[in-house]
Design a protein around this nucleic acid. Structure first.
Lengths: 212, 212
DNA sequence: GCTCATACTGCACAAATGTACAGTAGTCCG
DNA sequence: CGGACTACTGTACATTTGTGCAGTATGAGC
């Protein structure tokens, strides 16, 4: 069995997504009626196919028990997943703890992770003005995609000796530079003495309000 | 009949909202089981009460046919209404047309309007660098709350002779000033010759990505 | 040609579900 | 006290719905 969906299956999946957007999953009868099937069994079989391909999950016995599982990203199904339309907001990161440790999560924020490219995994509360030059201000929420490597010039969330910071990444032959975007700040030079890791890539900003 | 909900009715409503967040509305049986009712009729009657008070809408005959109607905002039901968890993104605003005219809407963006205070009504694509000083860059999406008046110092979306602009608002005895946040730009002075109106208050920013 | 997968029709049955009606008990109010 | 309202129990029945089984037609691949 191919993992790819047939046109028909894709159409069924789209219809299910549309129904969920409207409020509730379709019944077999709804699907049959919409596609002009004379029999609900046709719908049932399509659901089985979609389920076996991992696109949906069927709850046995329950009416309208259809859930989308893994969203086909490019279609924007993500809006239908309660768990995925929100992002954790990370506040003060304590030394020695992973960023996403639950004690750092201030709240869940209703922002679609798929809004950003690549997808955002969490929001990090920015402290300081070192990146003001590219419009990242103190208090802003930085959308971050988790990844361990970066290319020169990318804006990253990095950890140096247990301290988390946002800077532009620059790898030289012999050392790593973390560049601020503010003339009032000095570049940070990372030598091998210090523990260094990249936590993620900055993929966006969310800001609430403006000071008058 | 009071329009206010009893404690029990509020609890039922909360449960329905919770179920919808999980994916689908509850059946009478689900409600009865959750609250320990021996009979599904108890659930049915509560649903009737909620429906007659306008809190929910019942679809006759359909299983799980419960919809929330008016969200009690402060409870965060807004997340359950497909129409209210997203904001329209406004692109280029054509002269002479209201901002929210449908031809200006580029797409719907999954961002919770309640994230901002006051609530955001739409997102406006920012053009130009005139507000760079407070971190509003070219291409950013400005979250805007519709309102027709503003106080001195607030960042507003204003319309001057059919042109839409984002500036800091300053009312003087004899004239109105629109102040940029960028030394490369000059303040705009609005005299009585020109048609002027405030479209809304800037309440936040959403940005996708950073240029390397 | 045979086999396999897709895409359906048709029938059937049991469980889930919506819904109506009758009745009990407590509270609040005039 | 009687009446209205809330909050339930209990029974019953017609649909709606999920689900299984058998069968037809079509196209792709060997």
């Amino acid at each position: 069995m191919s993992i790819l969906l047939t046109d028909r299956q894709q159409a069924i999946l789209d219809f299910i997504a549309a129904c969920l957007r409207e409020g509730s999953a379709p019944t077999r009868g709804d699907i049959a009626e919409h596609f002009g099937f004379a029999s609900r069994s046709a719908a049932e079989q399509h659901l089985r196919a979609l389920a076996s391909k991992g696109m949906i999950e069927l709850q046995a016995g329950a009416s309208r028990g259809i859930r989308l599982t893994r969203p086909t990203r490019e279609q924007g199904y993500s809006a239908l997943f309660p768990g995925t339309v929100s992002l954790p907001l990370i506040g003060r990161v304590a030394a020695g703890h992973p960023i996403l440790a639950s004690e750092h999560i201030e709240r869940q924020v209703q922002v679609d992770p798929e809004l950003f490219h690549p997808r955002a995994d969490y929001l990090l509360r920015v402290r300081g003005e070192s990146m003001r030059g590219i419009g990242i201000l103190d208090g802003d929420w930085l959308a971050v995609h988790r990844q361990l490597i970066a290319e020169n010039g990318q804006v990253v969330v990095a950890r140096i000796d247990d301290e988390v910071t946002v800077k532009r990444f620059q790898r030289r032959a012999d050392r790593i530079l973390l560049l601020p975007e503010n003339p009032d700040f000095q570049p940070i030079e990372v030598d091998s003495q210090r523990e260094f890791s990249i936590e993620g890539l900055a993929v966006g900003v969310v800001r609430q309000g403006f000071t008058a």
